[in-house]
Structures are given as structure tokens and as C-alpha cells.
Design a protein around this nucleic acid. Structure first.
Lengths: 338, 338
DNA sequence: CTGTTAGCGCTTTCAA
DNA sequence: TTGAAAGCGCTAACAG
């Protein structure tokens, strides 16, 4: 491995001067710089970032931290989408990107804040699933032991060195619910996963609020289905439809669950949208391709990831967050399922 | 930040002794260890991994390197699946995981080998898309400038500090093709993306080989569709069916493309599987949920990711790869589309 | 078993 | 404009 010293010797200057050249500091004379650049190139010098980080006390690396009990958390299309946006900005701005998932209960390998030291990161983008208590615990840990972070889908405390990026989940859910009500549906269901994601809680509020505002002869049922899978959603929906035969519209807390809902209809011989309307949330890549094409609320995960990364990098480079709170619009996408 | 020295002072021992305790070295007397552990705990000591890495010349971090022109490469379900497996093993074994995507042409930010220094990683799992020439260039760079790596879906050279994990793409593609031939199909099509993934090339070989072995009155067409998206596959399939009205079976090089193929049939008023049979490759999460449920060849990306990570970590900890070549089975999954 | 010394590769500080 | 010295936090090597 070529070090600064090697280059310095080869170019007949001090290590300091080489460092100045490498870091584009203007203090070096043209000819000296020339000579150093040549040696740098000839020896194929690459800075050792551990040494630089040790000295500068920063690493130019970001982390994506996901608190989710599923070991397959990265297979979730929404997380994948957020990660895509993060990775894009990290690459553009010359930051490394570390990913780390943890179960909510803190059993599986400790605290979020450990990642700052352990993975040598300067800041993190954090998504928290789990009960409000668990989420609060993680936030407290992050405040005490971590560095700057951007929290997705959940507000941050005034004392935190943090900002948040949220989607308009509530109004999005209200919009799709109103769309259903306007189409004449009066008995609505909503299938949600057991895990308490803040975004899901907002969607439930939006759903309930919209139904409430027009509650004459309307009923609304919310059922938990267990894990965030189509199978679980299908089973929950079958139960829901059996218990409430007059139900004519079922929403999924996200598109993956909507896929399961559609399958429940098929099994019971119901047509969509003629007999029962279905809608999802997120607008994942395959939403257009499902049969019938899925009516859903678009929540742009990649944009949220990009915004979060930009916010975080801004904080790292300018010492403060340009804003503490960013909202990303949601949009009702009407296709054929509702 | 608490350092070893701080702890040493608090416990009345040397920094070295604290280091020995932190690293569980057996040389420390019980009572001393006790005292140190207490101080460690009281001061909330966390090792600085940059310093440790600098000294030990390792970082306990792995990278997932993807050469793919799409900025949305992480949204690809197969990559997501591989990443899931990698992340799982990395977490279990106490390694960090860095991800980095690069375009094939080397324009967008340099060489793969830079990641070793830049992201401070000990080894990498690498997936290469692009022409054979571009792939060779990346491998050469990795050999010269990088560290140990595991290559997915492609053999490694004898001189490389590397191993490979491959899926049985060829036999998998042959199996699904034979399935089609056995069902009486004689005019078959295969839709592939422009980007030359090694796995796709193998699938084409398997397809061609199976048709060849039974070539009486059979025709086989392979069409490139452009990017790896359902839209592109749909357009390509429409062209294919227009040009070859007798075609009764169309394969996709992966499930995402198969989704587009199904849509092309719908547009032309053809039923699947009655008029035209369709099959994919990968068995992504949604394959069961598509209509009709997709016949495909299962290639377990998460298992490949896990195996790759285990192989790599074995090399890092024992100095050599336990094997240079691992094959992962594929399995024909017959559902309703073919 | 414990402490001392030295140095990983880099950058900050200060002197020339 | 350049160089020398010091030290980031940790651990290998050796001495006691």
C-alpha cells in the first residue's frame, strides 16, 4: 500500500505537502504540485480513509437504519425504494452508505447508536417500526449516544440533533377513502399489519377521519392481519368478508397487503371492482401490472430517501439542518381496482 | 468520547490492559478484569473502530458492489433479495455492510477497487452487468487494486483472490423450456434485456440447448427488449407475436419481464395459458400473486447472498476460501401460466 | 499478568 | 510556500 510518506519521498517533498496536494489546498506552488501529482499517479496512491477519519473525526459515510423484526426487511418494496434514493444521493455526494437492520426489541444486537461507532458513520437515516414505547426507547438512545440523524415518517423531539421527512399519509389515506365514499361505498374495511409503523397509524387516522366526516349509514372496520405479507392480508380479508357480507370496499395499508386482499376476493368468487373495490398505498413498481391495476396512493419512497440524504449531508457539511421537518406529497392514483 | 486511556486512568491500569479486557483476551487476572469492566461500563466506553481498523488493518465491513447502469438497481427484486441474504449474515457475524452501485462504463465515479479504500471494507460481494469486455475490465481492476471478493453468477480467474457463487441458470432455463416442449409448444420466444448479465447469457444457452435437442419442427426466437422493465418486455413481446403469429410460448429472462409479457397477451386479446404460455425466471416474491400465477424457475437470491457472505467471511477469518466455486440449485416451479 | 514503547496513515499546528 | 513535530485511539511486540 502506498502511503503519503512514500509519495513524499518519491517527489522529494514532505508528507504534509503531499497531503495538501491530495486535498486540493491552494497553498502549494505550481511546480511542486506538478511533481507531487506525478508521483501520486505513478505510485497509484489511494488515501487510507481510516487514518483520515481518525484524524478528522469523520468518515464520510451514512447509514440506513431500519428497525423491523423481519429479516427480509430489505425485500420490502418501500424500503428498497427509500434505499435507492439514499444510495443515489450518497454516491453523488461522495458518501459511503452502510445499511443495518435491527429487531424492535433490542435483543438482536444492541442499540442503534452503536452503529455510529461500529460502522464509523457520520449520520443516519432512520426508520422505526414497533410500538410507541420501543420507538421512544430507540430515539432516546439515538439522542444520547448517536450523532445527527433524519427520521422517516415520525416527528423528532426539539432537543434532538435531527430532522424528519414525512409523507402525507393521513391526507393520502383520507383521499382514497373519500374516493371510495364518493363511489357510493358505505361499508369499508382496512387491513393493517400488526407492526405499528408510524406511517400506518397515520393512514388509519386518515381513513377513520374520512369515514367519520360522513358517517351516516357508513361502517368502517380496521383489522390487523399479522405480518406484512399478502398471505396474512388474504386470510384477514376472508375473515372480514365473512363477518361483514355487506362490505364493498377493502383498503390495504400498503400495496403488498392489497395484493392479498385481491386474492381473498378471487377465492370467494367476488369480482373486483364490481363486487368489492380494493385500494392500496405506496404505488410500488408492480401496482400498474397487477390485475386489476391497483388504485393506490402514491408515496414516493425514492424521493423521501433522496430528501433525507440531502438533509443529512447538509447538516454534516454546514453544521445545521436546513429544516427540521420536510413533508412529501402523496397522490391518489386511480386505476381499475377502485 | 471515552477512550481506552480514560478507562485506564479510572481503573488504575494501563491502556493495554483495558484493551485486553475489551477484546476478551484471557491474560487478565479476574479482579483486574472486574475493575476494568466496571470502569468500562461506568464511562460508557465504545471502541473507536477507525483507530482499531487503522492498527489491525481491517475494518470488519463488507461491501455489496453492483455494476448496473440503472440508478434504481436496488429496486430490482433479485438484487434486493441477494442484499437481504448478505445483510442477514453480516449482522449475525458482526460485520458492517456497505453498498455501492456503479455504472458499467466507469464514468460514474471510478473503479470498483476504490471502494476497498474508500469505504474501508475487508471484502466484497460483486455482481457484474455489462459487456464481457467491461466485466473483464472490472475484474482486472479488482485483482490489481482490491481485496478478496466473491463474484456472483460468473467464474473467477485462477489468479484471483476470489470465489464465485453461481445459480444453475443454464439447467434451470433448459428445464422450463423442456416443460414447454413437453406440453407440445413448438414455437417459442425468449425476451431478454439489453444489458448482458452473465446469468442471462446462461439462460439463453439453456433455452437454445433445450430447443436444439428436439429441433424437429421447432423454432426459437430470442429478442432483446432494452431496459429490464415490464414496459420494455411488453413492447418487445407485441412485436414478437406480430411477427410470429404461431408462437405459443414466451419466456422472460426474469419474472419482471414475464409480467410485461403477460400484459402483451392481454393487449392482443390472447389468453394465458390457453393461447400462449408464459414463464419467468427467479421466482420473485410476487410470482405466486400474479394472474395467472407465474410458472418460473426459482433462483434463491437470498440464499446466494448468504452463501456469498459466508464464503467471504470464511476467507477473511481463515485466510483462504473454503471453496472457489459454489453452485446453487434452481428449481422449476410450475404454476398456472405454463 | 501488567506496563511501556512504538507506530498504523493521516492532518493540525506551528515554525522556518 | 514548505517542513517538522505531535497526536488522533488503538494494538503488536516486548520487557518486566
Amino acid at each position: 500500500m502506498t502511503t503519503l510518506k512514500d509519495v513524499a519521498r518519491a517527489a522529494g517533498v514532505s508528507a504534509q505537502t503531499v497531503s495538501n496536494v491530495v486535498n486540493n489546498r491552494a497553498v502549494v506552488r505550481r511546480e511542486t504540485r506538478q511533481r507531487v501529482l506525478e508521483a501520486l499517479d505513478r505510485l497509484g496512491y489511494r488515501p487510507n480513509l481510516a487514518a483520515r477519519g481518525l484524524r478528522r473525526r469523520q468518515s464520510r459515510a451514512l447509514a440506513f437504519l431500519v428497525v423491523d423484526p423481519s429479516p427480509r426487511y430489505l425485500a420490502d418494496p418501500f424500503h428498497g425504494s427509500v434505499l435507492t434514493g439514499l444510495a443515489e444521493v450518497a454516491r453523488e455526494r461522495g458518501y459511503g452508505l452502510v445499511i443495518q437492520g435491527l429487531p424492535p426489541d433490542g435483543k438482536g444486537g444492541g442499540r442503534l447508536s452503536d452503529v455510529y461507532r461500529h460502522a464509523q458513520i457520520d449520520g443516519a437515516v432512520v426508520t422505526l417500526g414497533g410500538t410507541a414505547v420501543e420507538r421512544r426507547r430507540h430515539l432516546g438512545d439515538l439522542r444520547r449516544g448517536g450523532g445527527p440523524f433524519v427520521l422517516l415518517e415520525q416527528s423528532v423531539g426539539a432537543g434532538d440533533d435531527a430532522a424528519c421527512v414525512r409523507g402525507r399519509n393521513r391526507s393520502g389515506a383520507a383521499a382514497v377513502t373519500r374516493h371510495l365514499l364518493a363511489a357510493g361505498h358505505r361499508h369499508l374495511g382496512l387491513v393493517i399489519p400488526d407492526l405499528a409503523w408510524p406511517a400506518v397509524e397515520e393512514r388509519v387516522r386518515g381513513f377513520r377521519g374520512a369515514v367519520e366526516s360522513q358517517r351516516a349509514r357508513t361502517t368502517a372496520r380496521v383489522v390487523r392481519c399479522g405480518p406484512e405479507t399478502p398471505d396474512a392480508a388474504r386470510d384477514a380479508t376472508e375473515g372480514l368478508l365473512a363477518a361483514h357480507p355487506k362490505m364493498t370496499a377493502v383498503l390495504g395499508a400498503n400495496d403488498l397487503l392489497a395484493v392479498g386482499i385481491l386474492d381473498a376476493l378471487r377465492r370467494r368468487g367476488l369480482r373486483c371492482p364490481e363486487d368489492v373495490a380494493v385500494a392500496g398505498f405506496d404505488d410500488f413498481d408492480l401496482a400498474r401490472w397487477i390485475r386489476p391495476p391497483l388504485t393506490t396512493v402514491r408515496l414516493p419512497g425514492d424521493e423521501m430517501g433522496r430528501r433525507a440524504a440531502e438533509l443529512l449531508i447538509g447538516r454534516l457539511e454546514n453544521g445545521r439542518f436546513s429544516t427540521r421537518r420536510l413533508e412529501v406529497a402523496t397522490e391518489l392514483i386511480v386505476r381499475e381496482s377502485a
